[in-house]
Computed example of a mutant assay.
Amino acid sequence: MKTLLLLTSLLKLLHQVTPGCILHTYIDSRSSIDCDNLFDNFENIKPLKSELVVTVNITQSNITKISSGSFDDFRQLRKISLSGNVIEEIEFGAFSAETFRTQLPFLRILDLSENNIETLPKEIFNHSSTLELNLSSNALKQIEHGAFLNMHGLKKLDLSYNLISSDDEENVLPLGIFQDISTLEKLNLSHNSLKSIKIGTFSLLPYLFHLDLSHNELTHLTSGVFVGTVIQDLFINDNKLVVFEFPNARNVHPTINLANNDFECDSLAMTMSKIHNAFFTRGEIINEPNIFGISCRDNNEIDEDEEEEDNKDFLYDLAMMKYLSIGTLCVSLILMCYLVFCQKNNHDDECN
């Protein structure tokens, strides 16, 4: 009876204070809140604090900032989704060690996708109990060392569809950036602007089995990049790869997508041979990898393409010379006609 009265009062408060929100109540009396169009009035959910709420889903509400204390007293929260807002800033302390210890001890999923977050400062996610963190489709350009400090339980991290690059001038994927999340199993870095990855970047991720590096600008991936991992699913399709080396890991059965890269056939044949030898032991194949999307460009084809480009340039120059020659001829004819006209009409003084 007490629980029923609490839920009834909470439902009334919900409609009175927070229009646009729906309260879902489950059989075990736990609840979730779905809100949209709060128009950046994040404070409106605070009167809804309850030990019964396990999920908060606030989308399309023009939220620009996550302040410290936003989720105080929602101690049973398992999932927070703030996807599809315009969040630019996460206030230091919003997801601090103290917040997770005292206010969000059971949080497992944090979804901040489809926002405008550009930077992850040091210790922004400190001592988190979160299992899944989604930061996809933001505007991430910089990830500082210690951004994921002591997130010992994190298993899935999605950083896809951002602006992460690896230029020498501003390397936003520094070596050791993932060293604090050794429990990580799935990492998505697809649809960024990565041109290179340093050896050892993933070396402290012994449980990492799913890695998505597709749709970047990578040209080289050596075996040292994957040392220390147990990669089973590797997506490196839609890059600019000309060199790829897979580590000698006979204890895994990997699936590798190589499609839409810039491999030369000779180089790719050597790569495939090395992969085959890595999984070939005592006359039998041990956990032979599943490789798909294999394609390459023959060296002669590349030379022909270059020759074709040279021919196009030559034909263009020849055409320009032709037009210039015709123009010069026309000017000469006009000048000759003018001189003949002058001589016939005895206008020597005017012609001179």
Rank of each mutant, 00 (worst) to 15 (best):
L82V: 05
E132I: 12
N85M: 00
F106K: 09
L107F: 06
G153K: 09
L110E: 08
L159D: 13
H152D: 07
L107H: 02
G69H: 05
H145D: 13
L120F: 11
G69F: 03
T102R: 04
I87N: 01
H127D: 10
P105C: 04
D111M: 12
L159P: 15
L77E: 02
A94Y: 08
D111V: 14
S68Q: 15
F125D: 09
R78E: 01
G146T: 08
S128K: 06
H127Y: 10
N138D: 02
F95G: 08
A94E: 11
I124Y: 10
N162W: 03
G93A: 04
T64W: 08
L110P: 11
L135S: 11
E132T: 13
L140T: 09
T64L: 09
L107S: 03
R101D: 12
S67F: 06
L120S: 03
S70M: 11
K79C: 11
N138P: 00
G153W: 07
T102A: 07
N126H: 09
K122F: 06
S128I: 06
S68A: 14
T102V: 13
L112Y: 04
P105F: 04
G146K: 03
S160G: 15
S128W: 07
S136W: 14
F148Q: 04
E123N: 05
I117K: 05
I87C: 00
V86W: 04
S83M: 10
F74C: 00
F125M: 12
S160R: 15
G84D: 00
S160Y: 15
E114Q: 08
P121S: 02
F92G: 09
K122T: 10
L110M: 14
L149I: 06
D72S: 00
H127V: 06
D73T: 05
H145R: 14
E132N: 11
Q142T: 11
N150S: 10
Q76M: 08
E144R: 11
L163M: 15
N138A: 05
F95N: 03
F100H: 08
N162Y: 10
N115T: 04
A97K: 01
P121E: 01
Q103H: 10
E88M: 06
G153Y: 11
S160H: 15
S129V: 06
K79Q: 10
S81I: 04
L135Q: 15
I63C: 03
L110D: 10
E118P: 06
N126P: 02
T64E: 08
S96C: 14
I80R: 01
T64V: 09
F148W: 08
I164F: 12
K156V: 14
H152T: 12
L110R: 12
I80W: 06
T130R: 05
N85P: 05
E88F: 04
I66C: 10
E114I: 02
R108W: 07
L133R: 12
I124G: 07
